[in-house]
């Protein structure tokens, strides 16, 4: 049975991290996931719009949920921040007495209403719980063996745990499970659940890059060859600002950062160019050299590119 979702790509995947969108579209078919993209959906507010006006943020998300509801589909997010913000908004809209009615009155003039029947799920959760690690493992063509991979969860996919309800925020396991399923070895380090600093990186850069730098240094000291994250905002902080983050912790980090679907795509033997890895500021050559060699060997073994 195909798993079908309303894809909510979020702003970053359609903006500064287009490789996240590209790699997502490249892998989902192999996992048996079908999507209908919510092309008319707005920004989730990222926790920022709510600082100006919580009702606007709720109404924007209720509008998105109503679009998915009309399709009869649950929402799939590919951004940790979107997941946290939309998951919390959805929970409030479903459970707080009178709230959905009040927010629907804002949507009413445009003929929209949210009935509260949609669930919001991150790709990571869908892979672990609905696709299943076995099916993921069956799709692996290029094992990630010998790679020490540092999981970096970011904040919004973990906390507050009562709004998310997937991983244990003190001891999350979903990224580790996925890393093992593709043959890699997860790096254990405390920074995996900490903050990348992105929300204040434009106005308080020194604080933000010190946070990102400390977490990447810890991962690197723990033996990480590269890092994987389910959040494109973390990716921006860890990749785009990595030079400055390294300076903040007096280390030449040179730590490639992969989006979750890029890791899955490389393991599935999808050509790197189809995963947008050339768009990163920190080169991922050290990974690609190994995976391409393995991919060629696999292809030889099968008598053609598989």
């Amino acid at each position: 049975m195909a798993l079908k979702y309303a894809l909510y790509p979020g702003c970053a995947a359609k903006g500064a991290t287009p490789e996240l969108y590209q790699s997502t579209m490249a892998i989902i078919g192999r996992l048996g996931i079908q999507v209908v993209e919510l092309t008319a959906a707005s920004c989730c507010g990222a926790g920022v719009v709510a600082e100006a006006d919580p009702d606007v943020a709720l109404a924007l998300n209720a509008r998105t949920f109503a679009q998915a509801e009309q399709l009869g589909l649950d929402v799939m997010t590919i951004c940790g921040t979107c997941q946290g913000v939309m998951g919390a908004a959805n929970k409030r809209l479903k459970t707080e007495p009178g709230l959905r009615e009040r927010i629907n009155r804002i949507l009413e003039p445009d003929g929209m209403a949210y009935r509260g029947t949609v669930q919001v799920k991150h790709l990571l959760w869908i892979v672990v719980r609905e696709v299943g690690l076995q099916r993921l493992g069956e799709q692996v063509r290029v094992s990630m063996e010998d790679f020490q991979i540092a999981p970096f969860y970011g904040c919004y996919i973990l906390r507050p745990s009562w709004d998310l309800g997937f991983d244990d925020p003190e001891n999350p396991a979903s990224l580790e499970k996925v890393i093992r399923a593709v043959g890699g070895e997860p790096v254990a380090y405390a920074g995996r659940t900490k903050c990348c600093g992105f929300p204040i990186i434009l106005e308080k850069e020194a604080i933000a890059v010190a946070m990102a730098g400390a977490n990447m240094k810890e991962a690197k000291d723990g033996g990480a060859d590269f890092m994987v994250t389910p959040c494109p905002l973390c990716h921006m902080s860890l990749d785009i600002y990595q030079d400055r983050a390294g300076k903040a912790v007096n280390t030449n980090l040179n730590l490639p950062i992969l989006h979750l679907p890029q890791l899955l795509g490389l393991a599935m033997g999808i050509p790197p160019k189809d995963l947008g890895v050339s768009r990163h500021l920190v080169p991922v050559d050290s990974i690609i050299r190994v995976t391409e060699k393995r991919r060629a060997e696999t292809a030889k073994g099968r008598g053609g590119l598989g």
């Binding site: 702003c11 903006g15 707005s42 719009v49 606007v56 434009l202 106005e203 308080k204």
Partner: peptide
């Protein structure tokens, strides 16, 4: 303040375009 401009600038962009545009955001803050 930078933080305040982040919030107001972000909300303005979403209101105008429906989505955050990272090309415009730094100018709003800086």
């Amino acid at each position: 303040s930078g933080g305040a401009r982040h919030v107001t600038g972000f909300a303005e962009i979403v209101q105008r375009e429906g989505r955050l545009n990272e090309a415009v955001m730094p100018l709003k803050i800086v």
